[in-house]
Design a protein around this nucleic acid. Structure first.
Length: 359
DNA sequence: AATGCGGGGTA
DNA sequence: TACCCAGCATT
């Protein structure tokens, strides 16, 4: 005997546990479904409800909407975000009135998708929910259900992955009961198969969910990959006095290594050289840089380029704290003897750099 | 094939 | 704070 399909299990669950009282589910005409679908793009149900009620009160049908001013429409959208949705909605209403006698081309999904603001998933949702014809949706809920049910790895933002998700969503979609199925799979994603703390024990398809069977539910769908860390390179001055001490500066409280002591650092070698010439004219800068040091922060990669300079002792040189960086907050500096490590906080990569330096 | 759009809810 | 939300249009 053939076991129950995904759709059959889902539909019987929906019959008892599904949401049936959302405003747009009452009298689901194409117009009412359309407005709800546009509002619900990237916006949660709880947020939409009040906006939807007010919108329907003011624009009860497509002709009212088409003849309204854009300003009126946008006013009803204020606070919802993604305002191009409202402009497209308004424009779409005018197109439908002018070109389609005020009716959606429900028999032609491609024609639906050609309308402003209506993409593949919204077109399918309008068709299925308002006319009960079979059409495949793939919104955030369905993506999550599909990723888990088939244990699909990969971020759906990638084109190839996205195509696979559409294919799997298509496979799950039954030939009949299009409206109920469409609402059911969204309800599953919204109420049980949630992004966090999904209630798998209540799930009507848990017995065949690969993600659950493989204990991967919490890792699916795969998150958007963190983009590669940008690399920043900065030039650090190793100013060596009498082959004994190095110049350190205390960093500003804000930014990386805030408050720690560190080598003076600059955006470019030229900037470093200019500062050195002005501050320690007697210093001699080596032309060959030292070996670069790499360091990784949470949000970028830092390439440390050290340059060594030598300073012969001149009695009377200012030993006390001095200021630098005229445009920045005053910063103190000190001479540091690496052979007698003082009680100052050095960033790890700088400490490592100094350990490798011959004075 | 990747980005911008936007405000709100949630852990 | 970071992530996610009934995605689409644009580049």
């Amino acid at each position: 005997m053939k076991h129950e399909s995904f759709a059959e299990r889902l539909l019987s669950w929906y019959q008892h546990q599904g949401r049936k009282n959302l405003p747009w589910q009452q009298n689901p005409t194409p117009y009412r479904v359309w407005v709800s679908e546009i509002m619900l793009q990237q916006t949660q149900v709880a947020t939409v409800i009040d906006y939807y009620q007010r919108f329907m009160q003011s624009f009860p049908d497509i002709f009212t909407l088409a003849s309204a001013s854009q300003e009126q429409v946008l006013h009803h959208w204020a606070g919802l975000g993604y305002y191009s949705r409202a402009r497209n909605l308004h424009r779409c209403a005018q197109i439908l009135v002018q070109e389609y006698q005020g009716h959606f081309p429900l028999q032609d999904q491609k024609a639906m998708e050609a309308l402003p603001g209506i993409g593949p998933s919204t077109a399918a949702a309008i068709i299925a929910l308002s006319s009960d014809q079979r059409a495949v949706i793939l919104d955030g809920n369905v993506k999550r259900v599909v990723a888990r049910y088939f244990a699909l790895e990969g971020w759906p933002g990638k084109t190839a992955i996205n195509r696979l998700f559409w294919k799997k969503a298509d496979e799950l979609t039954p030939a009949t009961r299009a409206a109920d199925y469409t609402q059911a799979i969204m309800d599953l994603g919204a109420t049980l198969c949630t992004p966090r703390q999904p209630q798998c024990s209540q799930c009507p398809v848990k017995d065949h969910c690969k993600g659950l069977l493989q204990d991967k539910v919490s890792q699916l769908p795969s998150p958007k990959p963190k983009k590669a860390l940008p690399t920043q390179e900065r030039h650090f001055l190793v100013l060596n006095k009498n082959s004994k001490e190095l110049l350190l500066q205390q960093r500003p409280q804000d930014g990386i290594w805030g408050g720690l002591w560190c080598l003076p650092d600059f955006t470019t070698r030229e900037e470093l050289e200019a500062w050195l010439t002005q501050t320690y004219p007697q210093a001699r800068l080596e032309h060959q840089g030292l070996e670069p040091v790499k360091h990784v922060f949470s949000h970028y990669r830092l390439l440390i380029r050290p340059w060594q300079a030598h300073l012969a002792d001149i009695s009377g040189i200012q030993e006390e704290a001095q200021t630098y960086s005229p445009s920045m907050a005053p910063t103190t500096s000190l001479w540091y003897n690496p052979r007698q490590p003082a009680n100052v906080g050095l960033p790890a990569p700088i400490k490592k750099l100094l350990e490798g330096i011959q004075l």
